[in-house]
């Protein structure tokens, strides 16, 4: 009879975490900033069709880094959760916090129980009527939830990007300034990111029901060239 090798739980968890982290670090990062006009989400993404940033509900957006198929599955589950909840109760009852907790449950469960943890980090952002009320939940591969304020960075090299962004971040930025600063922080010193390399969306603070808007193509290029305009 063969005995399975004993692996200490600490070692098991560490191996899984290392595996997930490695997978996430291979992808490109994204950042979200809360400014007076809303929440700007800026991702390094060369694809125009495989999105990292998407709309979940009226005032809630989703962003994911890591393995595309895994976070896209979570995104769709989030849209379904929100639409079902809004249909069953009311649109006002759909909130980012409960969705972030649901994501944390699924990610935590997968991390401890499945063969392979999910190699993703996700962001659930909800824009409020004033900047103080903005919510940004950063959910890690193991189900850890961080409630961020001001700005947050997801993905590989998140620490160095967050440090660069932290040196300049100002909540009173216009959209143009925020996108330019986010692009510079994501790029680092050695390279520069053009409009084509970015996927940008904003949860607009002052708008009707659906706050999510993408900023793409010429509009994005102009915004980045202008820098200060919005």
């Amino acid at each position: 009879m063969t005995m399975p090798f004993y692996v200490a739980p600490e070692q098991l968890m560490k191996d899984r975490a290392d595996f997930a982290r490695k997978g996430i670090a291979r992808g490109r990062a994204l950042t979200a900033l809360s400014i007076s006009d809303g929440i700007v989400i800026c991702a390094e993404n060369r694809s125009n069709t495989l999105r990292k940033v998407s709309e979940i509900y009226d005032r809630i957006a989703f962003a994911g880094v890591g393995r595309y198929n895994e976070f896209d599955q979570l995104r769709i589950a989030g849209v379904r959760h929100a639409d079902l909840k809004g249909y069953t109760y009311s649109r006002e009852d759909v909130d980012a916090r409960s969705l972030a907790n649901q994501y944390a449950q699924v990610l935590g469960q997968t991390f401890t129980h499945e063969m392979k943890p999910m190699e993703v980090e996700i962001l659930v952002a909800e824009v409020a009527s004033d900047p103080g009320g903005d919510q940004m939940f950063h959910v890690l591969y193991d189900g850890t939830v961080n409630d961020e304020s001001g700005y947050t960075v997801l993905g590989g090299e998140a620490d160095s990007i967050a440090e660069r962004l932290g040196q300049t971040y100002d909540g009173n930025w216009g959209v143009g300034e925020a996108v330019t600063a986010a692009a510079a922080a994501l790029a680092g010193e050695e390279r520069a990111l053009e409009a084509d390399d970015l996927e940008v969306a904003i949860l607009v603070r002052e708008i009707g029901r659906r706050a999510f808007q993408r900023i793409e193509g010429d509009e994005l290029a102009e915004l980045m060239a202008g820098g200060t305009s919005d």
């Binding site: 589950a77 989030g78 449950q105 699924v106």
Partner: peptide, 8 residues
């Protein structure tokens, strides 16, 4: 309300 996840 739990997250609606489905098999493929």
């Amino acid at each position: 309300m739990t997250l609606p996840l489905f098999e493929a």
